[in-house]
Simulated assay, not measured.
Amino acid sequence: MTYYQQPDFNTYPDKNKKRLKQVAVLILILLIAGYSAFRLGSAFNTIEVNNETTFWQKFVSILSFNTAEPIDKNYVMPNKEENRFDILLLGIRGEDGPDAKDAGPLLADTIMVVSYDKISKKASLVSLPRDLYVKIKKNKNDKINTAYEYGVYGGGGLNFTKELISKITGVYIDKAVVINFSSFEKIIDEIGGIDIALAKPFEESGQWGYEFKLPAGVNHLNGQNALYYARSRYSSSDFDRSRRQQQVIFAIKDKLANLNFWSNPVKTITALNTLRGNIDTDLNIWNTGDLLNMAKEINDSAKITKHVISTENLVYESRENNAYILLPVGDNFDQIKNFFKNLNQEITAPSPTP
Rank of each mutant, 00 (worst) to 15 (best):
M1K: 15
Q6Y: 15
P7E: 15
D8E: 15
D8K: 01
F9P: 09
T11P: 02
P13R: 12
K15H: 15
N16W: 13
K17L: 13
K17Q: 13
R19F: 02
L20N: 09
Q22R: 06
V23A: 10
V23D: 09
I27P: 09
I27F: 13
I32K: 07
Y35S: 10
Y35C: 03
F38W: 10
R39N: 10
R39C: 15
G41E: 13
F44M: 01
E48S: 03
E48P: 00
Q57M: 10
K58P: 05
S61Q: 10
A68G: 13
P70W: 10
D72M: 06
M77Q: 05
M77I: 01
M77L: 06
P78L: 09
K80V: 06
L89I: 07
L89N: 01
L89A: 12
G94L: 08
E95R: 00
G97D: 08
D99I: 11
D99F: 05
K101M: 07
K101W: 11
A103V: 04
M112D: 04
V114C: 12
Y116K: 00
K121I: 10
K122V: 05
K122P: 01
L125C: 04
P129T: 05
I136C: 09
K137F: 08
N139Y: 03
T146Q: 00
Y150F: 08
G154F: 14
G155S: 03
N159E: 08
K167M: 13
Y172S: 09
Y172N: 06
D174V: 05
D174K: 03
D174Y: 00
S182N: 12
K186F: 08
I196W: 00
A197C: 11
A199D: 10
E203Y: 09
L214E: 04
P215T: 07
N219Y: 08
L221C: 00
L221A: 11
N222C: 07
Q224M: 15
A226S: 07
Y228M: 14
R231K: 12
S235A: 13
D238W: 01
D238M: 06
D240S: 09
V248G: 02
I249P: 05
I249N: 05
A251L: 07
A251I: 04
K255G: 10
L259Y: 13
W262N: 03
K267P: 01
I269R: 04
N273W: 04
N278K: 11
I285R: 02
I285N: 14
I285H: 13
N287R: 06
D290G: 05
D290F: 00
M294Y: 12
A295W: 01
I298G: 04
N299D: 03
D300S: 01
K303S: 07
T311K: 12
L314P: 04
L314M: 09
E317D: 14
E317S: 12
R319F: 15
R319E: 15
R319T: 15
N321F: 09
A323T: 15
Y324P: 09
I325S: 05
I325E: 11
V329S: 13
V329I: 14
G330F: 08
Q335S: 01
N344H: 02
I347R: 10
T348C: 07
T348M: 00
P352V: 01
